[in-house]
């Protein structure tokens, strides 16, 4: 298969998949039930009287009432975000189960992401400097190496490898097993 053909094949597959995904997203947009939406909101809020549980998970009275309020508000047409805002305005940021994306708490989100990106850059530059440090074009070097090598020496090494492999694993002791 030529490079061009395989590229076309690749693009074709990508097109098919993306059209299926678009179809899935457009034709049947998320028909979430009220229950699911209420659960989504509740699982982003912290139960204030329990140890590290969300309002969705907690069996406490307070959480039960809060789940009721969430349902009511969603039913009256509020969006998920508005309901969360309602609770934040009443209880403050401590009601949120994940840090808000503003103020000092934004740092919680940005820092790991920034560190990942700088880590990726670091790895990239380290790799590149290693590669540059290696100096020569590796392919040329290998060609030069294989040109320099003595046929007899090569045969000797190959024989030694064969022997040692045979000791390691009987399958290599069969003659001709190297050639596929």
């Amino acid at each position: 298969m030529s490079k061009r053909q395989s590229l076309l094949l690749f693009l074709g597959i990508v097109a098919v998949i993306s059209s299926i995904w678009l179809y899935a997203l457009l034709v049947s947009p998320s028909r979430q039930t009220l229950d699911q939406r209420a659960h989504d909101v509740a699982s982003q809020l912290k139960c204030l009287v329990c140890q590290g549980e969300s309002v969705a998970d907690s069996p406490s009275m307070l959480s039960l009432q809060m789940r009721g309020i969430i349902r009511q508000q969603l039913q009256s047409g509020k969006s998920e975000q508005e309901v969360i805002q309602y609770f934040v305005s009443r209880y403050g940021d401590r009601i949120l189960l994940s840090p808000p994306m503003q103020g000092l708490a934004l740092l919680a989100w940005i820092f790991p992401i920034a560190l990942m990106i700088s880590g990726a850059l670091l790895v990239f530059f380290v790799l590149r400097s290693w590669q540059l440090h290696a100096g020569k074009e590796p392919d040329d070097a290998d060609k030069a190496d294989s040109a320099n090598i003595d046929e007899q020496e090569l045969a000797y090494y190959q024989q030694q490898i064969e022997q040692e492999l045979a000791a390691e694993d009987p399958i290599f002791s069969q003659p001709g097993s190297e050639v596929e």
């Binding site: 699982s43 982003q44 912290k46 590290g52 969300s54 940021d93 401590r94 949120l96 189960l97 994940s98 840090p99 000092l104 708490a105 740092l107 919680a108 989100w109 790991p112």
Partner: peptide
Amino acid sequence: GTLFPLISDAVRHQTLTVGPPF
């Protein structure tokens, strides 16, 4: 994420939770 509540408490006296969504 585990340490952040401590940091935010120390810097701003703000009790935050870093929970599963994070």
